[in-house]
Design a protein around this nucleic acid. Structure first.
Lengths: 220, 220
DNA sequence: CGTGCTCTTGAGAAATCTCAAGCCCCGTGG
DNA sequence: CCACGGGGCTTGAGATTTCTCAAGAGCACG
């Protein structure tokens, strides 16, 4: 069993209540614009940069053997992404809609050079957030369609910081590929939730959450 | 966007080709014995130790609202587990069968005290392995029953280092809770794989992999 | 006012789950 | 040595959920 020692423990403690959005190291990145469906990075590409969504939205995904696409995560404004545990990307990332992405190089060639003891507390909260999101996502994939969709709506609402209504940047296909459902099932489930009075579809991408507690019960 | 700087980049590079099993910091832990189905740590307990399986097998899981159990990971001899990103455990862990677990305290009170730059390369490969395993697991949950079971058998075979045959320490219920299937579906799928000549069930826990390539095709 | 894309809806097919029964293995005790 | 009992595993049949295939509706854009 490895021992982690005093300083690691202190660093862990320091990270504990810090979220990825609060990581406050200086920004060195340039902001780039990506059009809808344009690739930001691809699977197996060397992971040379880290990214932050300034505006818009991003999907990270993998293509399965049979051509199906599994979306591993959506990233919304403020979210960091693209930092890998290895040298190359395991997922591809694309802009879901017209997006501004802050891109910064991950290497010595940037003028800024903290030692690794400084970098560690930056990396750890990112890893933790990613891990938690993924763990929740995994739990989601073994539940019924209504639970998945209800949970998804609440997650999007929470993450976009809205209360009464949520604007989805992604298509039904994206939602389906994220939840492991077909677009038809996603659509039908939304219709059911509307008929139950839990939500109202202003338009297909604009959804009012009329009854959050009922939604939460559905997602439970 | 945060910058990671030179040393972090070097450290990442150093970690790149290191797996959890190879992490070589000194062991300080004492080896404890856990009987079948005995809890090693529980959800929400403070994460004060790190664990390594010496013999036996461990399941890490969460209980869902409705009483169902989702197994997040199995740990086999040589695997490290229980290291969390926060202060407390998110999963519970139990011995699947009679197991010896090496337990070491994760704090300053252990005599061993590397600085965090030393601890970082220990933590990072662990996080990476865990992340990869989880990502694969997630991809698995959106596929058909036969693919899930075939993949599971190959994974267990690979991880236990055997070639022709695999001995499963866990019950059908454990497998089902890991794969998001019922025990009946797991059982039926194994029967199908046997009828197809891909495997042979010596006993319910002892499975010969007669045709690995066919299995791999099934799991693809 | 078409055209193309996305979304919704329907009906039948397929996969998985649920409920129920029975089997197998193995340890225990007569 | 054999009957008994319990847990784990398998099998079956019908219910349920989700998928597939197909058609049509809504909407933005040229």
């Amino acid at each position: 069993m490895l021992s982690l020692g005093t300083q690691a423990a202190r660093v862990l403690a320091r990270c504990e209540n810090k979220t990825a959005k609060e990581v406050s190291r200086p920004y060195l990145g340039t902001t780039r614009r990506f059009a809808r469906n344009v690739e930001i990075f691809g699977e197996d590409e060397p992971a040379t940069h880290v990214y932050r969504v300034v505006s818009g939205a991003v999907r990270a995904f993998r293509i399965l053997h049979d051509g199906r696409r599994q979306i591993m995560a959506f990233y919304l404004p403020g979210d960091l992404f693209g930092l890998e545990y290895g040298n190359s990307h395991v997922n591809s990332a694309e802009a879901i809609c017209e997006s501004q992405i802050s891109v910064s190089r991950l290497s010595a060639s940037s003028g800024f050079a903290p030692n690794s003891a400084d970098a560690f507390p930056d990396l750890w909260p990112l890893a933790r957030d990613e891990w938690r999101r993924m763990q929740d996502h995994m739990m989601l994939l073994v539940r019924g369609a209504e639970e998945r969709v209800a949970h998804f709506l609440l997650e999007m609402s929470r993450r976009s910081g809205t209360t009464a209504s949520v604007t989805l940047p992604m298509s039904r296909q994206d939602i389906g590929d994220y939840l492991g459902l077909t677009i038809e099932t996603v659509s039908r489930t939304l219709t059911h939730l509307e008929q139950a009075g839990f939500i109202a579809l202003r338009s297909s991408r604009q959804i009012d959450l009329c009854n959050r507690s009922a939604l939460a019960r559905s997602s439970a």
